[in-house]
Computed example of a mutant assay.
Amino acid sequence: MSQMSPDTDGITPALTRRDDIPDSQWNDWHWHMRKRVTNLGKAREWIRPTPDEEEAIEKTAGKYRWSVTPYYASLMDPDDPDCPVRRQAVPALGELMDYSGAEVDPVGDMFYRRTNRVVHKYPDRVIMLITEACPVYCRHCTRKFHTTDVDGTYFEKSEGEDFGEDLRYIADHPEIRDVLLTGGDPLSYRDGKLEEIVSGLRAIPSVEIIRIGSRFPVLLPQRITPELCEMLSRYHPVWLNTHFNHPKEITPEAERAVDRLLRHGIPVGNQTVLLRGVNDDVATMRTLMTELLRIRVRPYYLYHCDNVTGVSHFMTSVEKGWEIMDGLQGHITGFGVPQYVLTTRLGKIPMSRPSYRQTPEGLVLRNYQGREMLLDDSVYPLTETRVPAPGQREGGR
């Protein structure tokens, strides 16, 4: 058993291991929710905090919520503060620093909110912020003000308010065909409460697709029970997008959770955030994307980390994002390459660097190895005025 450094009494307390916990408890998601790490004392059961981490835990108390499931805590390297799981889960002093341009809501959720929970930003789809709660309060959350800030919320009314107003808004706007349940994490609710919401949406004729944004497959895969999947399968088409950020998070438990969703007809996509010190190198991203494909999760987005208050220390440069995308394209299966986007009040803006440039002679194309070729304008016209009619040679009558 791993040992901690001796404390002031000369006692060397043991760290908790997965094997120390009976399967009956470890496989019960309710047990993990009850036993979450929420203070320094509990953290010392899983890791040896550094002085900086101890200071951050102390100084963020009362400002930002902190919670880590035992499952996710078990993935942290107890001795390495740069462990990618640990960096996502344990408070850091960077959360308290001021960064130029940082905002609590840079993507405009509150600007586009139409009811207590409905955010209508795009023509045919909305999100419903149905909760503030999460099993783990990820330190990089783009909605940190809503989920993690003790004094913050996007809600105008209580989270416990009736959902009638939100469902009526969606029903009154038949152009809405796609609803994403998010929060916080919707799967924080028990199955019965979640089914009330999902069934209410399915009763609206214009709603074609219901999506759930949840990090439970990563943070507490035991939540993905047969009962949950069976319930969701009654309301198809239902999709789930999750949030693997590092290969270390792809465990046998996570793989089984994904498999259970898929076997119930629920496609699973992934939205990775580019995070400094976690996954900001080509090798890590290649491994992550190929491992996702192995467990049949489709890479969907690579988000550039938003300049969110309390999160900005995770940001990289856009150039770093381009470097990583260049290192993915052509090196792994095409459908394993996510779309690199920057989320703004204008929406999600594709940020991938173009692999071509326009010249007077035509298009100069560049492949993943940096090799270039010219496509002559007479062969592949750049404008419709240059496209010959069927059966007509260019320049003919």
Rank of each mutant, 00 (worst) to 15 (best):
V119P: 02
D124M: 14
T115F: 06
R117N: 06
P123W: 12
Y112A: 06
P135A: 13
E103S: 12
A133D: 14
D124P: 03
E103K: 12
P91R: 00
K121I: 10
F111G: 06
C134R: 05
R113C: 01
Y99F: 15
P91D: 04
N116W: 02
R114K: 14
R114Q: 00
G101N: 12
A102L: 08
T131Q: 08
Y122H: 13
L93K: 04
R113V: 05
V136C: 15
A133L: 15
H120E: 04
Y99Q: 05
F111R: 14
I130S: 07
C138Q: 03
T115M: 04
F111Q: 14
D98E: 15
V107F: 04
V118K: 00
F111M: 15
Y122K: 12
V119T: 03
G94S: 07
N116L: 11
Y137E: 02
H120S: 01
D124H: 14
G108H: 01
G94H: 07
G94A: 10
Y122C: 13
E132Q: 13
Y137A: 01
L129M: 15
Y112T: 00
D124F: 14
P106D: 08
I127Y: 09
A102C: 12
Y112N: 01
A102F: 09
Y99S: 05
Y99H: 13
E103V: 00
D109N: 05
F111S: 12
Y112S: 02
K121F: 09
L96S: 03
M128I: 05
D98F: 15
Y112E: 00
D124V: 00
E103D: 08
Y112P: 03
V119K: 02
T131F: 13
R125A: 03
D105Y: 10
H120R: 00
G101M: 12
V104G: 11
T131R: 07
C138M: 09
V136H: 10
Y122W: 14
K121Y: 10
R117Y: 11
L129W: 09
T115S: 05
A133S: 15
P91W: 03
V119I: 13
I130T: 03
